[in-house]
Simulated scan of single mutants.
Amino acid sequence: MKYDFDKQIPRRGTDSYKWDSAKSGDVLPMWVADMDFHTAPAIVDALCRRVQHGIFGYTRVPDSYYKAITDWFARRHSWAINREWIIYTSGVVPAVSAIIKALTVPGDKVLVQTPVYNCFFSSIRNNGCEIVTSPLVHTDNTFTIDYDDLEKKVADPKMKVMLLCNPHNPVGRIWRREELIRIGKLCIRHEVTVVSDEIHCELVFPGHTYTPFASISDEFLRHSVTCISPSKAFNIAGLQIANIICADACCRAQIDRAINDNEVCDVNPFGVIATQSAYNEGEEWLNQLIQYLHANYLYMQEFCREHLPNFPITLLEGTYLVWMDCRTLGIPSEDIEQQLVDKTGLWLNAGTMYGVEGEGFMRWNIACPRATLMEGIKRFMDFVRNL
């Protein structure tokens, strides 16, 4: 079956956070990280069948849910996950927050590689911990790791957790196996637990390979906790479902306690059903989605190279989030965001949302029909020409 990702699907008026947050109906939102595509038909069909039942009481998570997860990761990513390692919860952000609560005490330090997903900062602060940054190095239109700085930071006795974003949001890196090994060895040496947010793990472009951090070795497995969810890849973020993978029984018990303390231990029936349908029946849809997203990226890359050479976009290895260098404007990112909305109706994310290292950059969401992407680029080009 050929899926139609070019189809324009009106979302305004559906209480979409992405589309209905703007004051004007003329705003084109390319900010929030959800997609403007129908999800896999198998997911929609399964949800429709559940709706037809007509009763939506408290949900028991069945054995088939765990089997769907373990089968998917074994088949697609060669990672053997044991059922007992899995803790379900309502989202990756609540998962990260609960894990930090379980593994730290107020005053401990947590490391992040900036620029990085903005909710990492709030999860650390909300648990009374100190944010420590190890900035990524921007070179040759991509980002790399400063291992000397990383080792210096993780060697601090108060450092307890490193939050890893794999694949990385917003810079689009799919960390290579050898990079993950260097990170892991440093953290294990200094007794720092790696908490890996792998929510974008399915969105990997040709020529790149996603490696689950915990799959590298038994030692890495024991010294890490992984957060996964089908929400980004299958466009079901609103169904509020995610999973924590933790092999160490003691650590898992602490996390389970924190999940309950934070009262994010219950999930809804639709998330449970959608997860099973995604992993059991959604693979061909996902494969075609990745092809379409990659083509969108290549289109944008070529367009910027030809028509916007002073606004290079970072080499995108995965995700659907494009990181654009706008430093040539000499305007703060937050001002660029506001001026784009005011003057053209284009809504992007200011780079500083992801840390001070994001100053001068903007984040684009290209998970949309090609025509929408073309309109967004046109609006940006008009903005630049009229400055």
Rank of each mutant, 00 (worst) to 15 (best):
M1H: 10
T14W: 12
T14E: 13
S16C: 15
L28G: 03
M30S: 06
V32R: 11
M35H: 02
F37I: 08
R49C: 09
S64K: 09
K67E: 14
T70S: 12
D71N: 15
F73M: 11
F73R: 08
R75E: 07
H77G: 00
H77T: 05
W85I: 01
I87G: 04
V93R: 01
P94E: 07
V96A: 12
I99K: 01
I100A: 05
A102W: 03
L103R: 01
T104F: 07
G107N: 09
P115V: 08
C119E: 14
F120M: 10
F121S: 11
R125Q: 13
N127L: 09
V132N: 02
V132P: 01
H138G: 05
Y147A: 06
L150D: 03
K152L: 05
D156F: 06
L164H: 07
P167E: 13
R173Y: 00
L180F: 06
I181F: 05
K185C: 13
L186E: 10
E191S: 14
E191M: 06
T193G: 03
V194E: 01
C201M: 08
L203D: 04
L203T: 09
P206R: 09
Y210T: 00
P212S: 09
S215K: 08
S217H: 06
S217Q: 05
H223R: 10
K232I: 07
K232H: 14
A233F: 01
F234G: 02
L239Q: 06
I244L: 06
I245V: 15
A247I: 02
A249N: 10
Q254W: 09
N262V: 00
E263V: 15
C265I: 01
V267S: 02
V267A: 03
N268P: 00
N268D: 13
F270N: 05
G271I: 02
V272D: 02
I273T: 15
Q276E: 15
G282D: 01
L289A: 02
Y292F: 10
L293Y: 03
Y297S: 06
L298K: 13
M300D: 05
M300N: 02
P309Q: 12
N310Y: 09
I313G: 02
T314K: 11
Y320L: 00
L321M: 14
W323V: 05
R327N: 14
P332V: 08
D335C: 07
I336C: 03
E337T: 10
E337K: 08
L340S: 07
G345I: 05
L348S: 05
A350D: 11
Y354D: 12
V356I: 12
E359H: 11
E359A: 11
M362E: 13
W364P: 07
A367H: 05
I377Y: 01
R379W: 04
M381A: 15
F383S: 12
F383Y: 15
F383C: 11
V384R: 12
